[in-house]
Design a protein around this nucleic acid. Structure first.
Length: 284
DNA sequence: ATGTCCGACCACGTCGGA
């Protein structure tokens, strides 16, 4: 089962990249962030194309900003939009941002998250970010079968930033944010990209400006956090840098995780074992 | 400081957000 997360920075602007990417990578479960559409507009723009490809969809959108979605072709059940008791910004009676959507897909409880940016450590939005992370942690009730994936807007360590010195006064790297993330992973969630790729300079986001992608000056802020069950079945993990290249990319690259099928589980298509004989090709 | 992109809007340029 292939699980992916991608901050698309407007799903409408990214349609010419998203649909070919789905066809090429064939993920079974996709967490999208920053769709920037209402639920109605998302259904109008993508409903038919996704149904054609076999995806069930749970979109949680608000229009101009934010917006998250889950696409799945291994089941999509018990959808929950938002987080229980999620904080609101700028005031407690403001409408909630569309930043999380959860469903059961292929036997896993998957949440697509778009953590608040924080803007700067002295901004009220930063405190909102910390509160939101606490609500996210509280929402994970069964860590063993959970996957929390998306744009965390936190670089877990200095190895996840192209130049830590430039970020000392910035959000994304502060001890409080990293502590909030550590408390989330402390539930028993593995950062599976870091497990697989322990060296520095493994990035998922590069600013559009100043040729940052070309120079590989990025950050790793898009994470796949996996509970014991999925983490124990990780077969492959990579950051799909190809999707960041070419014409009209998002500023984020997708993160892709392949899970082996459990021996007795009903969690999706079975991958043929490597020993299976290759299909004979007819010459014509 | 800031070489870009995105969506909105009393829209054809400017602005907030990232």
């Amino acid at each position: 089962m292939r699980v992916a997360t991608w901050n698309v920075n407007s799903v409408l602007a990214r349609l010419p990249r998203l649909l070919p990417w789905l066809d090429e990578r064939a993920p079974d479960v996709v967490c999208l962030q920053e769709t920037k559409l209402s639920d109605e507009a998302f259904a109008d723009a993508l409903g038919a194309s996704l149904a054609e490809r076999g995806y069930a969809v749970a979109h949680h959108g608000q229009g101009q900003w934010n917006g998250v979605a889950l696409l799945s072709r291994v089941g999509l059940d018990d959808v929950v939009r938002g987080l229980p008791d999620e904080p609101r910004f700028p005031a407690a009676d403001s409408p909630p941002d569309a930043r999380a959507v959860t469903a059961t897909c292929g036997g896993l409880r998957v949440t697509s998250v778009y953590v608040p940016n924080g803007r700067s450590p002295d901004d009220p939005h930063y405190l909102y970010k910390l509160d939101w992370l606490a609500a996210l942690r509280a929402s994970v009730t069964d860590p063993a079968t959970a996957i929390v994936a998306g744009d965390m807007n936190i670089a877990p360590t200095d190895d996840d930033v192209w130049d830590p010195a430039l970020f000392v006064t910035s959000t994304h790297v502060t001890p409080a944010e990293r502590k909030a993330l550590a408390e989330l992973t402390g539930l028993g969630l593995r950062d599976v990209v870091r497990d697989r790729w322990p060296d520095p300079r493994v990035f998922t986001y590069w600013d559009y400006r100043a040729g940052r992608f070309h120079q590989d000056l990025g950050m790793r802020i898009d994470l796949v956090l996996a509970g014991a069950d999925p983490a124990g079945r990780v077969a492959a993990v990579w950051i799909d840098r190809k999707a960041r290249k070419g014409k009209g990319p998002s500023d984020h690259a997708p993160v892709i995780v392949d899970l082996d099928t459990a021996p007795d589980g009903d969690i999706g298509p079975v991958v043929p074992p490597p020993s299976a004989p290759a299909p004979r090709r007819s010459r014509s």
